[in-house]
Simulated assay, not measured.
Amino acid sequence: MRKIINYQSKFLAWDKDVIILATQAGILAVVFSLMQVIFKPENDAAIFAMIGVFIAALVQTVGIRVNILNRVKASLILSIGAGFTTAIGCYVGNSFIATAIGILLLVPLVGLTSSAEHLSAAIILFTVDLFIIGSGAPSNSLHLAALNGCSLAIGSLSLAIIALIYARPFGQITPIVTKYKFSFKGVFINYQSNLVFSLILTIAVSIANAISYLFKMPQGFWIPMTALLILKADHDFTKSRMSHRLTGTLFGSLLAVLVALLISDKLILALMMLPIMFFIVISMARHYGAYTAILTVMVTVMMNLMIPDGYLIATHRLIDTLLGVITVAITLWILNPSIHKLLHKKQ
C-alpha cells in the first residue's frame, strides 16, 4: 500500500511539473507573438522564437522525470544544435540537392540513436527535425538564415531560464526520481540493431522530401517532417502514430479553419497562443492525436500572425500529412521485407 501511494505521488508530481512547464511555455509564446504583431509582422524571427519555445517544451516534457538542472543542460544543447540546423535548413531550403544531402547526412543519426535514453534521442530527433522545418522558410541571405537560427535558440533558452528561475525558490532543483539522469553517454547504444530502421527512415524521408520539391507543394516541408516523426522501429507503434497523425490533423484542420475565419484580429490571435501552447504541451504528455490536432491549430494561428488567409495553411497541412503518411506506408510495404530478406541471405 505504501509503494502504491509513493508511485501515485510521483505521478502527481510529474503532472504538476508538466502543468507548470505548459504555463511557462504559453506565457513565452504570448510574449513572442506580441513581438511579432507589434514590430515586424513580415519577419520570421519571432515566429522561430516561438518554435524554439515549442520544441524546448516538447523536449522538457520528454525529460520531465529528470531534475531541472539536467533539463536546462538538455535545453542548452538543443538550442545550439537546433539553432544551427535551422539556420542551415533556411539557407539551403531553395536547393533540392542541398536539402537532400542534408537529409542523407542527418536523418541516419535519428535512426541509429533511436535506442538511446529518451531525452538524448529526443534532442537528436528535434535537432534534425529543425533542419527540415528551416528548409520550409528558405532564405538566400546568410544573415536572415542565421537570424532565424539564433531566434529559435533564444526561444528555446528562454524557456529553460524561466524554468530554472521558477524552480529555485520552490525547491524543485532535486530530481523527482533520482535514477533518471540526462547524459549523451551510450547515445549510439545498440546502433547495429537499428541499421535497417535507419536505412528505411532515411529513404522514406528522402522520398517525402523529393515529393515536396517535385510537386512544389505549399508548406511542403510537412511531408518529410511527417515521415520523420511517425516512422518508428516498432511497426505497431508506427501504425498507431499514422492513425493519430491523420485523425488529429483532420480534426485540427477543421478547428483551425474555424478559428482563422472567425478571428482576424492579430492581437487576439497572439493572446490565444497562451491556451494553445498550454494544451499542446499537456496533450504531448498524454495523447499524440490530441497533440497533433492542437499543433495544427497552433501552426495556423502562427501563420495568421504574419499573413492573411492563414487558414489555407490548415488545408496544406492536411494534404502534406496525408502524403507523408502514404510515403511511410508505401516505403515500409516495399522496402522492409526486401531488406530483411537480403540480411537473412547474408547471414
Rank of each mutant, 00 (worst) to 15 (best):
K40W: 11
L269P: 08
L157T: 12
L295M: 11
G310Q: 08
I330Q: 04
F279C: 08
L159A: 01
A153R: 03
L58T: 12
L106P: 00
H244C: 10
L78V: 01
K266F: 03
M1K: 14
M273S: 01
L335D: 04
S338C: 09
A122N: 07
I294Y: 11
L130D: 05
D309G: 15
R71G: 09
S193D: 12
T86V: 13
D236G: 15
I211L: 14
L255M: 15
I268M: 09
H316A: 07
I282S: 03
I203E: 03
M303W: 14
F237L: 14
E42N: 15
A121F: 02
V30N: 00
G186K: 04
L109A: 08
P308Y: 01
P224S: 09
S156G: 12
T226W: 08
G63E: 03
K232L: 13
V18R: 09
V128S: 01
N304D: 15
I47M: 13
I97C: 01
L34H: 13
G134S: 07
T300A: 00
V205I: 06
A210G: 12
P337D: 06
L157R: 05
G171Q: 05
G63L: 04
S151W: 06
K341R: 11
S338H: 10
M217N: 13
L69I: 14
N94I: 13
I313G: 04
T99A: 14
A49D: 10
G171V: 05
Q8P: 10
V53N: 08
F197E: 01
L305I: 06
I276Q: 00
L228F: 00
V62C: 00
L21Y: 09
S158C: 06
L106G: 00
G220V: 10
A256Y: 07
A160W: 03
